[in-house]
Amino acid sequence: MSKNRYSVGLIIVIVGIILLLGKLGVFGFVWGLFWPVFVLAPGLLLHFLYFNRVLPSAVLIPGGILVTCSILFFLCTIFGWSLMAYIWPGFIFAIAVGLYEFYTFDKYSPRGTLMAAVVLAILSGILFGVTILFTVGIYLIALVLIGVGAYIIFGKRRSW
C-alpha cells in the first residue's frame, strides 16, 4: 500500500506544479516563443521519412517549405512580427527551397523543376531588395548623400 500512496502523492505534486506554472504564465510564454516547432517538426519528419526510404522524394517539396517557413516564424517570434514587413519574400523562397530539394535528391525529377526553383529564388531576391529599398531606402539615400558631400568637402583638391 505504501507504493500506491507514493504514486498518488507524486501525481498530486506534479499536477500541482503544472497548475502553478500555468497560473504563473510559464506555458503561455513557452507557447508564444516555441510554437514554430509545430511547423518545423512535420517538415523534419518528412525529410527523415524520405532519407530512410519510407516516402518518395516528392515529400521534400512540402518538407522544405515547412522548414523554411518555420525559420521565418522563429525570426518573427524572437524579433517581433513587424519584421514580417521585411522578410515576407521568404515565403516565395520557401517554395524555391522545396523545389530545389526535390530536384537535387530525385534523379527523375521533371525538367522544369530546377528552372522553377531558380526563378522563384530570383523573384524572392528581387522582391526582398525592393522591400528593403522602399522600407529603408531613404536611409540609404541619406547615407549616399552624406558620403558624396563628405567626399566633395574633404576629398583630394584639384587645382584647375
Results as ranks from 00 to 15, higher is better:
1 M>D: 13
2 S>A: 14
5 R>K: 14
6 Y>W: 12
7 S>Q: 13
8 V>L: 15
9 G>T: 02
10 L>A: 14
10 L>I: 06
12 I>F: 13
13 V>T: 13
13 V>G: 02
18 I>R: 03
24 L>G: 06
24 L>F: 06
29 F>G: 11
30 V>P: 00
32 G>S: 10
33 L>G: 06
33 L>W: 09
34 F>N: 06
36 P>I: 04
38 F>K: 01
39 V>A: 07
39 V>I: 15
40 L>E: 15
44 L>A: 13
46 L>K: 06
48 F>N: 09
49 L>F: 12
53 R>F: 12
54 V>L: 15
57 S>R: 11
58 A>S: 14
59 V>R: 07
63 G>L: 07
73 F>C: 05
74 F>D: 06
76 C>I: 03
79 F>I: 01
79 F>A: 13
80 G>N: 01
82 S>V: 09
83 L>R: 01
89 P>G: 00
95 I>C: 10
96 A>R: 02
99 L>H: 00
99 L>T: 01
100 Y>I: 08
101 E>Q: 14
102 F>Q: 04
103 Y>I: 00
104 T>C: 08
105 F>K: 07
106 D>I: 04
107 K>G: 00
108 Y>M: 10
110 P>E: 04
111 R>V: 08
113 T>N: 04
113 T>F: 06
113 T>L: 05
114 L>C: 01
117 A>I: 02
118 V>A: 12
118 V>H: 00
124 S>D: 03
133 L>R: 11
135 T>C: 01
138 I>W: 09
140 L>R: 00
144 V>F: 15
145 L>T: 05
150 A>Q: 11
151 Y>T: 13
152 I>N: 12
154 F>Q: 09
155 G>L: 06
155 G>K: 07
155 G>W: 03
159 S>F: 14
